[in-house]
Simulated scan of single mutants.
Amino acid sequence: MSQFTNVTVSKKANVYFNGGVTSRTVVFADGTKKTLGLMLPGTYEFTTDTIEIMEITAGDLLVLLPGESEWKPYQGGTQFEVPANATFKMDVKTITDYVCSFVSVS
Results as ranks from 00 to 15, higher is better:
29 A>L: 09
19 G>P: 07
99 V>L: 09
97 D>Y: 09
90 M>D: 05
98 Y>W: 09
83 P>L: 03
68 E>C: 14
21 V>M: 08
45 E>R: 03
21 V>N: 05
101 S>V: 10
62 L>R: 12
39 M>A: 03
52 E>V: 04
33 K>F: 04
57 T>K: 13
102 F>H: 06
73 P>I: 06
76 G>T: 02
44 Y>G: 05
58 A>N: 07
75 Q>H: 14
19 G>L: 02
30 D>H: 11
57 T>H: 13
43 T>N: 13
20 G>N: 10
60 D>M: 04
38 L>P: 11
71 W>G: 06
78 T>R: 10
67 G>Q: 04
80 F>Q: 12
99 V>I: 12
59 G>S: 08
55 E>C: 04
54 M>S: 05
75 Q>I: 13
78 T>W: 11
19 G>C: 07
85 N>G: 08
44 Y>F: 07
97 D>M: 13
31 G>V: 08
64 L>E: 11
25 T>R: 15
80 F>E: 04
33 K>E: 11
94 T>C: 11
71 W>P: 00
97 D>H: 14
88 F>I: 00
32 T>Y: 06
90 M>R: 02
86 A>M: 09
66 P>L: 01
93 K>F: 06
39 M>V: 00
87 T>C: 09
30 D>Q: 04
76 G>I: 10
49 D>W: 08
76 G>E: 07
68 E>M: 15
22 T>V: 13
31 G>L: 05
66 P>C: 04
23 S>H: 14
82 V>M: 06
81 E>K: 13
56 I>H: 08
72 K>M: 10
96 T>V: 04
103 V>S: 03
74 Y>A: 05
34 K>C: 03
22 T>M: 11
99 V>H: 02
29 A>V: 09
49 D>F: 09
47 T>Y: 07
54 M>T: 13
44 Y>M: 00
18 N>H: 15
66 P>V: 08
54 M>K: 05
90 M>S: 06
36 L>Y: 03
62 L>I: 12
87 T>F: 01
95 I>A: 15
28 F>C: 05
87 T>S: 09
92 V>S: 02
75 Q>R: 14
94 T>W: 03
55 E>T: 10
84 A>Y: 08
36 L>K: 07
40 L>W: 04
96 T>R: 05
83 P>Y: 02
41 P>F: 00
47 T>C: 12
23 S>N: 01
82 V>D: 01
32 T>R: 15
71 W>D: 08
56 I>K: 01
18 N>L: 15
63 V>I: 10
47 T>M: 10
83 P>C: 01
20 G>D: 13
23 S>G: 01
46 F>I: 14
69 S>F: 06
78 T>K: 12
38 L>E: 03
82 V>R: 02
41 P>Y: 02
79 Q>E: 14
74 Y>E: 13
64 L>K: 13
